[in-house]
Design a protein around this nucleic acid. Sequence first.
RNA 1: GGGCAAUUGGCGCAGUUGGUUAGCGCGUUUCCUUGACAUGGAAAAGGUCGCUGGUUCGAAUCCAGUAUUGCCCACCA
Length: 946
Amino acid sequence: MPTNADTTPLAKAYAPKDVEKKWYAEWEADGLFYADRAENKPQDPTGRRAIDKKPFVVVIPPPNVTGILHVGHALNNTIQDTYIRYHRMLGHESLWMPGTDHAGIATQSKIEKVMREEGLTRHDLGREKFIERVWGWKSKYGDIIVDQLRALGCSADWRRLRFTMDDKYYSSVIECFVRLHEKGLIYRGKRIINWSPLAQSALSDEEVIHKVTEGKLYFFKYPIIGTKGAEPEYLTIATTRPETMLGDVAVAVNPNDERSQHLVGKFLMLPLMDREIPIIADDYVDPAFGTGCVKITPAHDPNDFEIGLRHNLPQINVMDNHAVINELGGRFAGLERFAARKKVVEELQLLGLVEKIENYTHSVGYSERGGEMMEPFLSDQWFVNMKPLAEPALRVVENGLIQFHPEKWVNTYRNWMTNIRDWCISRQIWWGHRIPAWYAEDGNIFVGRNEEEARAKATAAGYTGKLNQDEDVLDTWFSSWLWPFATFGWPENTLDLQEFYPTSLLSTGPDIIFFWVARMIMAGMEFTKGLPMKDGTLREKDEDIVPFRDVYFHNIIRDQQGRKMSKSLGNSPDPFDLIDKYGTDAVRFTLLYLAPLGQDVRFGEESCEIGRNFANKLWNATRFVIMKRDEFQSVLPTVQFESEDTELLNSQAVQSDERKQTIASGFTMRPVTTLADKWMLSRANRAARDVRKAFDAYEINEVTKVLYDFIWKDYCDWYLEIVKIQPASTPLAVEILEGIMRMLHPIMPFLTEELWHALTGEKINVLIGQDDYITADTYKIDDEAEAEFGFVQRTVEAVRLLRSTVNYAPSKAIDLVIQLKQPSDLASLESARTIIERLARTSSLTIEQTGTEYSSMEYASELLGGRGQVFVKLEARSEDDRVKERTRLENALERIVQQLNAVTAKLDNESFVSKAPPAVIVKEREKQTNYTVQLEKLTASLQELR
RNA sequence: GGGCAAUUGGCGCAGUUGGUUAGCGCGUUUCCUUGACAUGGAAAAGGUCGCUGGUUCGAAUCCAGUAUUGCCCACCA
């Protein structure tokens, strides 16, 4: 009965757009993304949720509200959504906590840039108005980001959406500051910090990028006092930043450097400034570098700062916040730093004090955000003493309580943690959490949760005068590091915190391992320790206070030139566009498919064709199966089946309530009898097993590969072809396909939902509950059936090869002879006779024991390893044809000879035979036999063709 | 200066405990509108696995060295 494919309810090609909109809306309406504490969810509509479901929790790395998401975000959020959905289907209470980050400097500078185009600065608006404007920006871009995440299919619990500047979050941040201050871990100090002249703010060490830069090394001669006269003596120093000499307070030499021993204690006249500065001795100086003499500028270099402290030297800061020379720079005041540099060198040259200028390549710090050269700068800032926090945080990663995937990042982490330095957390900007410190007019500082608390402290200390709050705000990361617990309401010990902390998985890029991952571990362990848990016991053990147990470091997405995706380069496609063009599921699948763990990925938009084609393939396979199923059901009574099969089909078959039972957790409970069905079931369960294994090992890219190969090759290319030949396989084909939907759903949720619906008339998410994810029935993995069917496949392939070498169109029926050595092979091919007849399109098929010789003049032949040979009857061999065939066989012969020689050499090797495991030797002997047989056959064929 | 990766057919990559006929996708070539899919099907060509040694019966796989590339960290003026 011919069936027109277009009568299926599905269109000819997958059109993702409507499907995505429709299902996302339904999922939200069904409350599918909601996660709740056990006591809040007895009202589950499906009635399938167990009351004590184990939570699986992911907190989103909050995207910055500076703009829209890029492809890297798409990957990261796909990973998270996939795991959230996977665990939801495994029956866990899957909670994905969404949110965004205020991104202090990044956001502020973005807005200031926009304002500059209007000819405004933030000072024109004033603090209040400016911040108002930023909030406006935030609400616009925050919404775009959430829209993007929805378009990507993200199943976050949107009711819980958080922002790092929410009122509640604000109090978490302030609480954290106050507690660390009370503990003595936060302090205010005058240090050399990284000053960003562009942002007008201090930055942390992590926000500074060191790049190798071409510069110059200047050698200046400083006159030694007391040697004036006819032959004044000089001390030559080397510097890369001449302008800082305006703030020089000494020159240091190594105490063991004999060249300059006699000078220690003498004074130099600092040129241009006419200041007397001492010559001091300090171990820091490397006598072998430069001239062995170092100018000391404590206010502009961290090392000089330390030396200055040791020698009790003054600190002269010669620059203002714009990196412009200030009044302490004498007549150079008002010059920008690079102009000052030029002028200083010029003037010294006029004085004859420049010995030489060399080209010099060295590492220079630049702002991660603004890209400008950093200025080391003496300044009053707030710092966190990190060492005490780092110790436990290092322990839990080293002992594997927190697992990094891939593990190699542990090294990086350890390296940073063991060399950790204090964290500069104050920023001289307006957009952020204002530092909860109040200054008395006498210089005392009072820290409190609010002004009242600070006032109370001041009063207690006997101060009743004016208090001014610190103008600065906190580093963005000082709020982000609280994310895994502040989002649940910390410092309150909320029920949600008790239920969902520690979270399960963190997925992020390795580029923020220091900024964020490490600090979250520190903060989590510091601030949740001692809080009562659900059962009333206190969080004391490491496993109860770490913020997460697994960290998935996904790869960095680069463009096709290998450059990092970045907004300034404009090389990142907008995920919206990709989704629009290829479909959400295609983008999701492609990103995961291309993302091996720990390898950077080069991404071009066209790559999404992988996912699009795959989606379309599955779509069409489903169309076919639905068509086949309907046809099969309608013709069922009249089709002639083997008696056993008929019974089976009539009893088990395709009625939907029975189907539900058969798919309880694995693919099917249906007993299978044919070789092809056994093979299919084995392959399916193998795939399911491998998928689960890869998921649980956080090898998500392996998951996609297993699914891709299984679905495309095993299921579509082979099994669906077999269904065409053996209609009795249809019910199994349906069940396997349903299993495929359940396996693939976490990765391609829209497509599988739509197809599941088309197949069953239900929503897949109605199933969501215990064991809805596929379970591998590993006992159904049948190596023998796979080997046996594999031989059928190879036989068919051999025939196809012959067809193409002799140029017989697939539509042309052929006379085929298959000769086999072993009776067992004979039996398996005989049992698959119908399949071979159809797949090889034969007009006659003879399967026989090896013996009869067929002339190569009349038959084209191909070897089946050493197990046999297939012959395709020819109409005639032309001369041309004969030459071609001879060449083909000669090449084959050459390969065989090589292989045979290799194997023979191995087996002739005494030590191989005596030392290699017996199984290997047996295998080699088999190979030898096979090759020998093949050699003989090929030689014989060749002789005939001469 | 220290550390970590990578190096496999034209391109992009797999290859988990050493024994496979070294795989996959794209691209290329040939054939095919055979009752789902041309976003498809069948087949083919193409690699001495960066280099040099070593361990081993046996190395793409383990070890050492080396080259190239990339990344991270680092206060040598």
